[in-house]
Design a protein around this nucleic acid. Structure first.
Lengths: 340, 340
DNA sequence: TTGTAAGCGTTATCAG
DNA sequence: CTGATAACGCTTACAA
């Protein structure tokens, strides 16, 4: 049935250890036998048995992509699901299989991290979750499996101990606001998500504030509006805070979807964007090109982030450059379209 | 380091085979020793080594969720990514890990199905892909691993050979159209995706046609409009086919996102929905509740589909009721909101 | 350059 | 009811 290295050995007329060495490109096998064996393996459709391989100390070829249960709710998930797609793409190109799972069991609360660790099912962790317990980070460290933290900094672990790749949300907020100011805005509202579970919005707001103050514009608490991260909340902003909108010449939406709803409502009310009011979004979701006018936004370098994270985890698995941590904060960029 | 059944055996003062039996709930072990051993295992944070387990004939605890590369493009992906979330939820509750991957390697074109099969990495396949080669289905069958086909029927395999769960796209098209007719529409346009890669739209259109003809309404080819599956294409329908829209009293959009764009444009033009024109969508994406007016649509039972598929694959893995195939076509349902 | 043999952690068979 | 022991497929000293 399943072809093993012994089968290949029989066909090639060598021992199974020679086959193992040949297929693993051991330097101590002559090119000739290597080629012969590889040829046979190919024609026999051979693949190493994953279980046996991991048992005898090799790698499993699996990487766990650990995410937060709340990402599954629609809304916050747009950016994240795009990020996962990128991650899978890069892992696939590196011949790694991705096990995608929530960090904690939805019913029992048991840690999937420690389960995978103990089951020895994987070679490393990509963590897209800011709320992993200190205990879990410690278990991972004890196991000596590599971890790369993505997207958000961990709450219960010192960042210094980890390899990570984040994007600079402060800078994103700064860039968006600076752009509005450059375009002549003097009174700028910012709308953010009231998702209390994550502090990226705080950082963006801090960047917003800094840009204002650098340009000598007074920062006002009341111009910070937290609402649900939905199209409709953006749409109905005219109803919820009419007096604020009337007295403002620029709005920085911290999610594209909110901006989308707002732009639609503005058009219906005959408010000209960008002439009467300028609007910037955040994320550069595909939907940005669908808005009318097209939305100026902050691009999060999700592909680059995925690529760096995948390259790094593979390096760590192969024990390359693993003496010190690599920690990088990627810069978001401003994408100017029609709404400013 | 890693705790094994031998470690537990040492602590318990029994042989490692007793431990194995106890933890696997073998009936031939006394309740007393069983409890003792399970206790020790728990306090030692024991988990079976996955590799060793699968080597010696047991299951891997992994299920492959195989999808089509084109699903990663935004647009078609909304429904699919929701379906994946549901699948992961159910698998997780059954203590199975999901390996999510494209059917064919994006660069080499090599089959991931046969790779996983030969590597013996998984216990079964959930296939969300209508274009798997006959060869791959044959390999799976030869391996005796269970498969469940979801969402779409396979093109290169007789459906009779498979367990599957689909939804009835014909019925969906029928229900949408019948509803419009009941609401008084006599001239009904249908807008579908021009994604040539999949025949769900043909089926929906056939259902549309049948509903028309049953009610004695003439079917007209020119009322079938294939466009890209995007918000903007829906929005600009007024520009692309103005004369058709002017002469129609109902539109059946075969994707919600197109309907969404259209509703926005209609509102801007002062066309009253549903008074002047009635609109039905398809999918029941979360976005339906965000449209103004809220969109009447066809709900695809994605949760039920995921649940049935996961239950079935687990049964098959455990060799329960596996003498014959289970094949079920789920009924979509009409969700009436404000647009009709 | 290649072969032999031990070992990885588990399950299963066979005795007792 | 429990314990030895072989076997699963692979890697890796150690020998030749």
């Amino acid at each position: 049935m399943k072809v093993t290295i012994k089968d290949i050995a029989a066909v090639a007329g060598v021992s199974h250890s020679t086959v193992s060495r040949a297929l693993n490109d051991s330097p101590q096998i002559s090119k000739q036998t290597k080629d012969k064996i590889k040829d046979i393996a190919r024609t026999m459709d051979f693949e190493f048995n994953a279980g046996a391989r991991s048992l005898s100390g090799r790698k499993t070829g699996n990487i766990a992509v650990v995410y937060k249960a709340s990402y599954d709710q629609f809304g916050s998930s747009l950016y994240i699901s795009q990020l996962f797609i990128e991650l899978r793409h890069f892992l696939e190109r590196m011949d790694m299989d991705a096990i995608l799972l929530e960090a904690y069991h939805p019913e029992t609360g048991a840690s999937n991290i420690s389960r995978l660790l103990n089951q020895q099912k994987i070679d490393g962790f990509l963590i897209v979750h800011d709320n992993i317990t200190r205990k879990d980070y410690d278990s991972i460290k004890r196991s000596c499996l590599p971890v790369v933290q993505l997207h958000l900094p961990p709450m219960y672990c010192h960042k210094e101990e980890l390899d990570y790749f984040f994007t600079d949300h402060f800078l994103g907020g700064y860039l968006a606001t600076e752009h509005l100011i450059k375009k002549g805005c003097r009174r700028i509202l910012t709308v953010l998500s009231n998702d209390s579970d994550s502090d990226e919005y705080e950082l963006r707001t801090a960047g917003y504030r800094q840009a204002l103050e650098e340009q000598g514009i007074r920062f006002e608490e009341k111009l910070i509006i937290p609402v649900d991260c939905t199209y409709l909340k953006g749409y109905y902003l005219f109803n919820t805070i009419p007096e604020l909108i009337a007295n403002v010449d620029g709005i920085f939406f911290q999610t594209d979807i909110q901006a989308f709803g707002f732009l639609t409502a503005a058009r219906e009310r005959g408010i000209r964007i960008p002439e009467d009011l300028k609007v910037v979004g955040y994320d550069d979701a595909p939907i940005c090109e669908s808005t009318i006018p097209q939305l100026t936004t902050i691009h999060q370098p999700r592909r680059k982030l995925a690529e760096l994270a995948c390259d790094r985890i593979i390096d760590l698995i192969n024990k390359r450059n693993n003496e010190s941590r690599i920690q990088e904060i990627l810069f978001p960029t401003l994408v100017i379209r029609e709404s400013t």
